[in-house]
Design a protein around this nucleic acid. Structure first.
Lengths: 302, 302
DNA sequence: TGTTTCGGATTAGATTATCTAATGAGAGTC
DNA sequence: GACTCTCATTAGATAATCTAATCCGAAACA
């Protein structure tokens, strides 16, 4: 299994020298002095115990051994070069792996993604929706969009937008039996909860406290594991949801949801674009980040 | 033309680590510490700007990039290994290039060569007969057999045999008009000269002086560019040649030539087996040298 | 003929690259 | 809960590599 190879640097020196039939030219190619090539080739010949060059005063020739050796080495180095080039190319054009929270994926990113595809047709995006926070040193992701406090070590962090929460419901709900003109009317309606469980994101309890409404039974109503599901239930006129503005921007625009009344409550959580410090400026990552900011600015959500 | 490749040592380290999915095992394979591999891989990832491994606590995984990179590198190193192996093999079994003087080739080596072929059927011998002394650092030869004083810098030198010169002629010449029983009888015979031009090898002038014979016309007679031609002329009964013992050993044995009278004169020149110091103990060179000594000892010439 | 030029060899010393030893950290294992 | 395994990190030691200067010999030049 274990390969036994001559020193790689010496091989490179020899291969270049053999190609040029000149130590001086090889030295130029490898950006070293002629003496360095001379040493390396000599060392290689000693390691192998085989003469590779016949040295004349102003001319080099390959020995039979050198003549058979050079093409093989050239081929090997070509393979390495091609593989490296391919690696770099794929790094630029290969799929961009983005990790995002489930609800953000469903209600913000996916509906807007066709716009990115139109703008950067060469970049394939792989969206991985997950509610566990990825460690970029462990998981093979290029970047992420996260709700949080914006404190992530070793990452470049850009604030995409701040967020707030407010109640939304289907316009159909207004046509129902019970009015929905003020927070107090909620007493006759179903509350749609999500279990995001971020203490920093206001929930119905805190919102009702803020508005001073009493008598609403918090333990009742529909509970969902994800905000996106609560939103969908709201669209289906099943009740009133307390949601993050960012997630319902398009639904409000399209009239699928309305805001029956205020107020909006500020969340400490905001939306951040994150990427490993070292790769944050790579073309495809930058392209996606730029697009995210353009989209956020456009919708009046940011 | 100029290739731009990542550092070769780092590539080696990465390839081994990728193959084992373990820095520790890679370190064993390359006979370094685990820390060395860790450094090299990290350096490579920095040079490329691309993560190659995903690091878990007791487990390594390749990133997509690493996964595409490793097989190409493995292939490249395999090519290098195979080429190196082939080189070493050919060095052992490929043709043995021997440089010898023309006359030695014709009159000593070639007639005996079948014996070597029988003894070492795997070694092809390429005999290059030439009267110019080769420089092993310049010309692609493995070894040589030379007449001389045995002073050659940078070479391993083994005395094959010392030499002497004496007159020889065809037995047919004794049956001719003029007798050939003592040096003085040469006055009636044709002298066969060779133009080797080594002042250290006695010629007719010195031999006649030694024997005290007078009246022989040195300027007369037949001259040849090589000893082997003078010997052939002697075999053809064209006259009497003054030759080196080593060159006529087989002709005397076979009765093609006889020594009509003495004396033999010692030559300062002797026959040496030479090979570059560094490669003198290589199997095929040693095999040929051993055979040369066996042959020299056998014929009673050495 | 002598002089110049060219390209490789050589030497010794400087500079890096590379490696090691020691240690830490985190998560499986017993 | 102690132990073990594997990789990361640090600083310092070591060794590989490179450079600068110079030498050398033949070819080119004149």
């Amino acid at each position: 299994m274990a390969r036994r190879l001559p020193p790689m640097k010496a091989l490179r020196a020899f291969e270049a020298a053999a190609r040029h039939l000149s130590f001086t030219k090889a030295a130029e190619e490898l950006n070293v002095t002629q003496a360095a090539i001379s040493h390396q080739v000599k060392a290689l010949e000693e390691v192998l115990g085989i003469a590779l060059f016949r040295r004349f005063n102003r001319r080099l020739m390959l020995t039979d051994a050198g003549q058979t050796y050079q093409p093989a080495l050239g081929e090997a180095f070509d393979i390495v070069e091609a593989a490296t080039r391919k690696l770099r190319l794929e790094e630029q054009t290969g799929p961009l792996k983005v990790t995002v929270a489930n609800s953000f994926a469903a209600k913000w990113l996916l509906p807007r993604l066709p716009s990115f595809r139109a703008r950067e047709p060469d970049i394939d995006v792989m969206v991985a929706a997950s509610d566990t926070i990825v460690d970029f040193t462990r998981d093979d992701f290029d970047m992420g969009v996260r709700f949080g406090l914006g404190r992530y070590a070793g990452l470049r962090i850009d604030l995409l937008f701040e967020d707030e929460v407010f109640p939304v419901c289907s316009p159909r709900l207004l046509e129902g039996l019970h009015p929905l003109g003020a927070p107090a009317d909620l007493i006759h309606h179903t509350l749609l909860h999500d279990d995001v469980g971020h203490s920093e994101v206001p929930d119905w309890r805190r919102w009702l406290k803020l508005t001073g409404v009493r008598g609403v039974r918090l333990e009742r109503g529909q509970r969902f594991s994800h905000s996106s599901l609560a939103i969908q239930a709201a669209i289906d006129a099943q009740g009133v949801a307390l949601v993050r503005a960012s997630l319902v921007g398009l639904d409000l625009e399209a009239g699928r949801l309305i805001r029956p009344f205020g107020p909006a409550m500020k969340s400490n959580y905001a939306c951040y674009v994150v990427a490993p410090e070292g790769s944050a400026e790579k073309p495809k990552i930058k392209a996606f980040r730029d697009w995210l900011f353009d989209e956020a600015g456009k919708g009046g959500v940011g």
